[in-house]
């Protein structure tokens, strides 16, 4: 594709340009992607406005009654029209719990992806731009870490945090420990990608020019190199959001994540797992399906974004 606009009569202005862009067209052409985007958007809305949308507040002890415990979903015998997807062993509405759970899952996912991206992009920029020994050290650390699966690193950090804070204090910080341990297991990919593109960019003329007029290296990295290497980061971030959500759910399922008082989707599945054999399958299966649907939608969006932003495939 050349630098000239394809259509000289193309509408001007940022909004109009966006409406006429290749990306939007490729987005609308792929029906699966549109569906995935709609599902993802619904999750975001559901999570953001959970307190207003949810028919019940699952954490309001006054609002739940043990008499409503283990009610099956509405289409089964012995159900209660108040509870669309049934209730768990303490009488909490499963549908409401899923809404509140998505809230925590998405919050942990987003925060860890953002933190990982910031750390990874900065380290990648520095490694690529400064080079030499700094580069070698950062990349060795990245390589060693890359050999370990995210889940193991997250578990180790969590274990260490328990040792440092003690189990009781941990409950207070658990949200941030989760974010920290997940992001620490994800930063490598950003660093490697950004370093690669920085190595290419730093020899280009605009960077040399910036250096000649005496702009300090840090400013060159942030203002000049960064905007040119940030593209792929977006793709990694989308795919990583799915990974982060799964990691959080897994940690919560393993019992080292968020506590049952503020359950995420993973915690809900963990709680429901105990009732699988006594016949109350909906307590575990619905949150699980909700989690899988969310991850699938985000994955599909990531796949599409990767193809759409890849100039080789145009």
């Amino acid at each position: 594709m050349s630098d000239e606009p394809l259509n000289r009569n193309a509408p001007q202005g940022a909004l109009k340009r966006a409406l006429d862009s290749d990306i939007l067209h490729s987005f609308l052409r792929s029906k699966v992607t549109v569906v995935a985007a709609v599902i993802t958007a619904l999750y975001f809305i559901g999570a953001l406005f959970a307190p207003w949308i949810a028919p019940h507040d699952p954490f309001d002890l006054a609002g739940i009654s043990i008499l409503d415990a283990r009610v099956p979903p509405v289409w089964m015998d012995g159900s209660d029209p108040r509870f669309l997807l049934g209730t768990d062993d303490q009488g909490r509405d499963v549908f409401s719990a899923i809404l509140y759970g998505s809230r925590i899952s998405l919050a942990v996912g987003f925060l860890s992806v953002i933190l990982a991206a910031i750390v990874g992009v900065l380290l990648g920029l520095v490694a690529g731009y400064v080079g030499g020994r700094t580069d070698a050290v950062i990349m060795r650390i990245a390589e060693v870490q890359l050999t370990f699966p995210a889940i193991l690193i997250a578990l180790l950090i969590d274990g260490a945090a328990r040792g440092l804070f003690g189990n009781l204090d941990r409950e207070k910080y658990v949200f941030w420990i989760l974010v920290f341990s997940i992001s620490l297991s994800l930063w490598v990919q950003y660093a490697r990608t950004v370093r690669g593109s920085t190595l290419v960019e730093k020899n280009k003329e605009y960077v040399q020019a910036a250096r000649l007029i005496g702009i300090p290296p840090f400013l060159i990295m942030i203002r000049h190199v960064l905007p040119n290497v940030i593209g792929p980061v977006l793709v990694i971030a989308t795919i990583n959001l799915a990974i982060a959500i799964v990691t959080e759910a897994t940690l919560s399922f393993l019992g080292v994540g968020v506590p049952p008082t503020q359950p995420s989707l993973g915690t809900l599945i963990r709680i429901g797992n105990d009732f699988l054999f006594s016949g109350e399958w909906w307590i575990a299966i619905f949150p699980g399906v909700a989690l899988a649907l969310l991850v699938l939608a985000v994955n599909l969006l990531g796949d599409w974004l990767r193809d759409a932003l890849n100039p080789k495939l145009r």
């Binding site: 799915a242 799964v246 759910a249 897994t250 399922f253 393993l254 993973g266 599945i269 797992n273 699988l276 054999f277 399958w281 575990a284 299966i285 699980g288 989690l291 899988a292 991850v295 699938l296 994955n299 599909l300």
Partner: peptide, 21 residues
Amino acid sequence: LVGISLPTFFIGILLIFIFSV
């Protein structure tokens, strides 16, 4: 694609639900 999106632990739970329960 669905297999990649299903978290490992949930696959296990589904299998238990179908084949054991």
